[in-house]
Write a protein that binds this DNA or RNA. Sequence first.
DNA 1: TAGCAAGTGGGACGATCGTTCAGGTACTTT
DNA 2: AAAGTACCTGAACGATCGTCCCACTTGCTA
Lengths: 186, 186
Amino acid sequence: MKIQTDGRKVRGEKRRTEIIEAALRVIERDGVAGVTHRTVALEAGVPTTSTTYHFSSLDDLLVATLISCARDMATEVYWMIDRARSRGSRGAEEVAGLLAEALGPRRGRTMAEYELYLLAARKPELRPAARRWLDVLTSMVRHDDEVAFRVFLAGIDGLLIQGLIDDEPPSAEELRPVVDYLLKPA
Amino acid sequence: MKIQTDGRKVRGEKRRTEIIEAALRVIERDGVAGVTHRTVALEAGVPTTSTTYHFSSLDDLLVATLISCARDMATEVYWMIDRARSRGSRGAEEVAGLLAEALGPRRGRTMAEYELYLLAARKPELRPAARRWLDVLTSMVRHDDEVAFRVFLAGIDGLLIQGLIDDEPPSAEELRPVVDYLLKPA
DNA sequence: TAGCAAGTGGGACGATCGTTCAGGTACTTT
DNA sequence: AAAGTACCTGAACGATCGTCCCACTTGCTA
């Protein structure tokens, strides 16, 4: 029993992921509202019919893209924790740095993440994906104080979404004291 | 010099606000994506050309609607604080109740508020409106500890947006300990 | 009362949308 | 080699979109 050696399927799967990546770029640039079969196809450099062939509907494409985006983010959080842990750090510096990065160079990606949140609020099928990075944090970080941990998770989301409507993205230095406060032992 | 006694302008202004209210209902029901001249006009019970007459573009209508929504929310926050203050309360119970209400009966409105956030992330002109209720809180609530106050603001936003992707909206009782933690003196 | 200003609304235009279809190509299996 | 499968793509259809035009009613003003 061979696993994925059909050249056609391999190429098809590759194009499928290319389309998803193109769709993510469109979302980062213009938001979910900018996603159409034609804009995504143009961004991916494929004919319009290709996106309809690989995704049974535009909604399918959108859902697949946001789920992929959520998986990427969860993976990044995983490695961030792993990195901080290997340094024996409490993580405050890493968290502040990650937040500053999310609101600066990776601003588009962060907006895409919250577009996912909002879509998940209306489509229950998307909620597991939206909660993914929260689950990673919850399962990896030791938290004796349940309430303090919930405050930490809420604080991260609040800092991010409020940072998105700041005129200037906050620096890691500005975020640092707030993150310290969120992480301080009770 | 008479102020707004022209019957035509009065009725026009009335219809304008009716259109905004209808647009808000559409956003609560279907999100910003569901806003078109036709859907809003149908919801308001007016001809399609009426929405184009009173708003120079669909984007204008959207912006006006979200700004109106933000003003309403800021007003509610104002009175919530006023109410809590007159009772001599520290506000934890009021805040927890308001959050539970925002995630329960007023869920659609809360989603609309975060659609405004996300739109404001892309359109700087909307940012003052998006920050409005934060400004009300900042100006009304005494905060000796600047960092603790920022954590409080971020925590509120985080609890709300995370509550939107919960399968069951959290109750005031569940939120209470977290709010207590957010409000506890350093 | 004539003339102007403000709002109303039916109808339509061009653009763009999601989606379908049919013919064609590349690869695998029998 | 023949048949079957999976993918590719140009062209098109019907629906819906934002917006405009123009004839109209209504209320104000000189």
